[in-house]
Computed example of a mutant assay.
Amino acid sequence: MNLKEQLTQYKPYNDREAVDQKEILRYLMTFDNLLTRENEQAHFTASAWVVNKKRTKVLMAYHNIYQSWSWVGGHTDGDTDLLHVAFKETQEETGLTNLTAISKEIYSIEILEVPAHIKKDKPIAKHLHLNLTYLIEADEDELTSIKPDENSGVEWKELDDAVMACSEAEMKVIYQKLNQKLKRYAKK
């Protein structure tokens, strides 16, 4: 199933996701270079909400640019399989290798405003991330590692603590939504 089909079939969780879904589909109909950073206005990213087997904790990384605890993920860089991107980014940013997709379906969608910043001594203009999030399970006993050019900490946090540890107001709202949606996948 291609990206447009996946997005079209996705059932929005709330009104915000419904608006974002419509807008992302509009971008797909308008631009042909959304899978690379070539499009400096908006491009696709994939994130992972990495939970432990009991689904009581989430793995967070301390993001160097935003100076905040956050999920893991990154740019697609031309890859059309965004679940693959979420796995790759999780491995790169946390060192974890024993990962399982709880579902291969999109877990959440967001349009994220990225402020202008400097990355690797290069100025990056303000732009949008058309983000797809995937729900991934990992073993919390597996050894983690940081990716020094992106993060300076990787920690398992209780679900509510993960939201509280984030210093970005708009991301807290997203993380709360991800935790609420997780109830659908609760272990019994």
Rank of each mutant, 00 (worst) to 15 (best):
N2G: 07
K4D: 06
T8A: 11
Y13R: 03
N14M: 07
D15E: 14
R16S: 09
D20M: 11
K22H: 08
E23I: 14
E23Y: 09
L25I: 14
R26E: 13
R26M: 10
M29Q: 12
F31A: 07
L35T: 06
E38W: 01
E38G: 05
Q41K: 13
S47C: 10
A48V: 01
W49N: 07
W49H: 12
K53N: 09
K53Y: 09
T56E: 11
M60C: 12
A61Y: 02
Y62N: 14
Y62R: 14
Y62G: 02
Y66A: 14
Q67F: 14
Q67A: 15
S68G: 04
W69R: 00
V72W: 00
V72G: 00
G74W: 03
H75G: 09
T76S: 14
T80Y: 12
L83V: 11
V85T: 08
A86Y: 03
K88P: 00
E93K: 15
G95L: 13
L96Y: 00
L96G: 00
L96H: 00
T97P: 03
N98W: 01
L99F: 01
L99T: 00
A101T: 05
K104F: 03
K104D: 08
I106N: 01
I106C: 04
Y107E: 04
E110N: 12
I111S: 00
L112D: 05
L112S: 05
P115W: 03
H117E: 05
H117V: 06
K120V: 07
K120I: 06
P123I: 02
P123Q: 06
I124L: 09
I124Y: 02
H127V: 06
N131F: 08
L132M: 15
Y134Q: 03
L135T: 04
E137M: 12
A138C: 05
D139W: 08
S145F: 12
S145E: 12
K147Q: 09
D149N: 12
E150I: 15
N151Y: 10
G153V: 03
G153F: 05
E155A: 13
W156G: 02
K157C: 03
K157M: 15
L159K: 07
L159V: 03
L159N: 07
D160C: 02
V163M: 03
S167Y: 07
E168V: 15
A169M: 04
E170V: 11
M171I: 12
K172Q: 15
I174M: 09
Y175A: 04
K177T: 11
N179V: 15
N179R: 11
K181G: 00
L182C: 00
K183Q: 10
K183R: 08
K183D: 06
R184E: 13
R184Y: 13
A186W: 10
K188R: 10
